[in-house]
Design a protein around this nucleic acid. Structure first.
Lengths: 266, 266
DNA sequence: CGTTTGCTTGACAGCATTCAACGTTGGTGG
DNA sequence: CCACCAACGTTGAATGCTGTCAAGCAAACG
């Protein structure tokens, strides 16, 4: 796959263009992403500007200073670095991870287009986790001081920002539920359903996806070892729930996955 | 223990008053808690008003509408209920928990005096978890709409509020690390150290505590079964790390606990 | 084309769970 | 005041899920 294409197609691409109905979305992203204003960004409805319009949106545009490219494998920020900006993912795919003193690493989330990175930094003015690009990515840097300023002026923006922080807290609670009380099969099923649901909201297929992360990263996120992740994928395939070819996943029975997640009621 | 005392002593009491250095704190709480303003609340430095002064503090006082008593076992709010207010714990002890569709329950946190409850409700205007009092408690209700309003006026309040939300996100990441990559011993050690550290910040002993929650609730929080929690307590006792008498815990070797948490480096 | 990185699979071990019994505590009513 | 009950906590034995170790294979990269 040539590099421009990898970049232009954002975080998902149908491996065979003729196959799935993945492409029900305009190709505006091929245009120079670094000139897109919030007001004309196709992620408007998923990102910070949800519900904003007119002057508020213009101000937000003005606020967003630099856009930044992050190459696959590079860090957008690292734990301990001073916190200045939040980052909205425009294209690409990130993981965030924390590590304990003794070096154990825990992936705390995967972020895709329209999602916000860096909220953890507000509490101490230093980032509390690493954000690593899992594929070449572009982000919009949102200077935090300016965002606070602007959100004092515009209640809609203020409210939207608070909702985003709160949503992150709720998401984390869901992950705790997953890590604290689910078995490997349930965790992986929940993970896949969550991913496809978010991809679907971005115009991608709900039944086919390309994983941007390794088995080890999935395992870290789900509190499992990579071998367990791999085995569970294989089991899902044997049971006819999925078709798995390395990172290329096709969901054959999403109902089956769903009953697995809520599956204690037998 | 007579009920008034249980209430007056908040969420911790030295089982034997002469024993530990638990009581290095004024007894102002014995006064009618329902008339205490933020400006004269002894939790000022732990709660929302951190860093505020003068007019800001007065305004915040004005904002805090009703104070509310919650009896042990009762819910402050439940998942699905409409969200209107945040709650600052004045006295007592809470747990928050989420439950999956099939009824599994996950304790997502324990909250003590000065901590804020309800942040999860902002995202959808409905509470996303249950908050249950583990002992008779008092909370200050902070109408959220008014808080947003006021934080548009006072940058310090705005900033402080954002920090609190962010801190919750960072805390959640820590719990994920715990649930995702630690073994039972490490989890329990981390849990105890976290509890004592928070209690210490409130003027209680760093080496003696009374658990407000059952083994099952600890287990739910830590992703373990109650039997495992109980066994691990016993093992810690055998190893001379703790003295355990039901819910009455005395820490004999906090260094030992600490090395357990960061203990992969052997 | 070789090397590196990531993925799969098998065999075995270990930690936590499950199931079960018993002990303790605190509250209630006789 | 004491007996009883219910909720909570402790402990043992056995099971099982997931981790560990190891080998082989596939894909990606230079």
């Amino acid at each position: 796959m040539p590099p421009e294409q990898a970049e232009a197609t954002s975080s998902q691409a149908s491996p065979d263009p003729s196959a799935a109905g993945c492409a029900n979305r305009p190709q505006a992203m091929k245009l120079d992403a670094f000139k897109v204003a919030c007001s004309s960004c196709n992620l408007r409805e998923l990102c910070l500007p949800v519900g904003l319009s007119g002057p508020q949106l213009d101000q937000l545009d003005a606020l967003i200073g630099t856009r930044r490219r992050v190459k696959r494998g590079e860090a957008l920020f690292r734990s301990g670095e001073p916190f200045r900006s939040l980052y909205a993912v425009r294209t690409g795919f990130f993981k965030t991870c924390v590590s304990s003193d003794d070096g154990r690493e825990q992936v705390t989330g995967f972020q895709m287009a329209g999602e916000l990175l860096g909220l953890d930094g507000i509490s101490t003015d230093n980032h509390a986790c690493d954000a690593i690009a899992l594929e070449d990515a572009q982000v919009c840097a949102i200077p935090y001081a300016k965002l606070e300023e602007l959100s004092r002026e515009f209640t809609d923006l203020q409210h939207q920002f608070h909702k985003i922080m709160s949503r992150e807290i709720v998401r984390d609670q869901g992950v705790m539920l997953l890590l604290g009380s689910m078995r490997a099969e349930e965790r992986l099923a929940a993970f896949l359903l969550n991913l496809t649901q978010r991809l679907h909201a971005r115009g991608f297929s709900a039944s086919a996806l390309i994983l941007r992360m390794t088995r080890e990263e999935i395992g870290s996120y789900l509190g499992l070892k990579l071998e367990t992740v791999s085995r569970t994928f294989s089991r899902f395939q044997d049971e006819g729930l999925l078709e798995v070819k390395q990172r290329d996943i096709r969901i054959l029975d999403s109902e089956g996955l769903r009953t697995l997640v809520n599956g204690a009621r037998c």
